[in-house]
Amino acid sequence: MSIGESIFLLAIAATMGGALTAVFARSIVHAMMGLITALFGIAGLYVYLNNTFLAMMQILIYVGAISILIAFAIMLLGPDSKKYTGFSVPGKLISALAVAAVSVVMFVRFILTNLKGDPHAVYAVTAKDLGRIFTDRLVLPFELISLLLVVAIIGAVMLSISSRNSRGDK
């Protein structure tokens, strides 16, 4: 096994272990750390898919912005991990078993279906090509994303202002 394959397996292990930690950790701070580990692992997988630009965007946006936002929310609310008991309702257990069954079925279908791709084709989409795509063909989704971000920022500000006004209600 070459050193590239070992690093690849390390990235996959980081992704899977981080995802399991993010779901099943007892404390919410540990769950956030697991999420950050999984995001770094996915950035490594993007590097192996010949997408260094997207790996950098992953680290900048997810690890640098969204995880820090979640950390701010945890610090504002306090890590109240009171009496965490997993499945109390039997309906939840049944739904979890259904999810597990569907995942096993999909995994078996993945095993049986051989995806006819060409792994040796040259794939070198650079940031220049990406800018070309966004300004030539995907102009409307690009502008809609900026509109969505503006609406999200204004919505967050409006929610905080209205909650400050209605603090004396309850």
């Binding site: 965007m57 946006i61 936002l69 979640i70 929310a73």
Partner: peptide
């Protein structure tokens, strides 16, 4: 998808804080 996730988490966290 990254942009949508950023907007979604910002709105969701403000609602959670309220």
């Amino acid at each position: 998808i990254m942009g949508i996730a950023a907007a979604e988490s910002a709105i969701a966290l403000s609602i959670i804080i309220i």
